[in-house]
Design a binder for these strands. Structure first.
Lengths: 111, 111
DNA sequence: ATATATACATAATACTCTTATGTATAACAA
DNA sequence: TTGTTATACATAAGAGTATTATGTATATAT
């Protein structure tokens, strides 16, 4: 995703947050939503997305439901109960991370 | 560094920013500074730090000066002219990244 | 004496993402 | 009607980054 390396490691948390926010989403929809809210900055590649979704599902953090819409396959994902709890943890880690990165970028604002 | 995956991909930018801020630092000092300003959150491991410094030096973004202090070796790094310019680019990428992550974490604040 | 801190380094391994490729349907433009 | 773009899934090869483990060596504190 994106040409910068910065997003490495945050994909899982991004997926989980989007699912928390939107309830139920399919893969392609996640990529479009991510692109939309970052104004085109964050392009989640398929090679990153699908393995990530499969892994989260294998870890019992996501449930999947397959549906056929307009004669095309869609796999709708939603957070499991375990996934919902884990999302809370990951989001607070993410917020801490963001705060730390801001301190690094602009140390003068941190006191 | 850290038990969270989030910092993956941002190490080079962190190093460069710390050098921009402090002028001249040696490896161990960088790890301590990072730990200090993140209140213990960010522990840059040696296995990540030293290869990163060597790579930045190879890319002509850092200069190195070896000194012996208290009978111990120190390698002081500083940004080259090229490195200083590149730091500006990477910091604006990082700020954009932070902004995007904030929008994802808290979409309600983004309008 | 022993452990901890300072200060460097690298190799094996694990993990994450990119790039390339593949299948298939739908919609739109030339 | 034919080619392109969009939708929608998937995986394999490769690149890149960080962890973990290990190594060398000196200084300081217990």
């Amino acid at each position: 995703m994106k040409n910068s390396q910065l997003y490495k490691g945050s994909l899982n948390t991004i997926i989980m947050k989007l699912l928390e926010e939107n309830g139920r989403m399919y893969g392609y929809e996640i990529t479009q939503k991510a692109k939309e809210i970052t104004k085109g900055e964050l392009n989640i590649t398929e090679g990153a997305l699908y393995p990530a979704l499969h892994k989260l599902e294998a870890e019992d953090l996501l449930d999947v439901e397959v549906e056929r819409v307009d004669n095309r396959l869609r796999k709708y994902y939603k957070l499991t109960e375990k996934g919902t709890k884990e999302t809370v943890n990951r989001l607070s880690e993410l917020e801490e991370f963001i705060k730390n990165m801001q301190t690094i970028v602009n140390p003068k604002l941190s006191y």
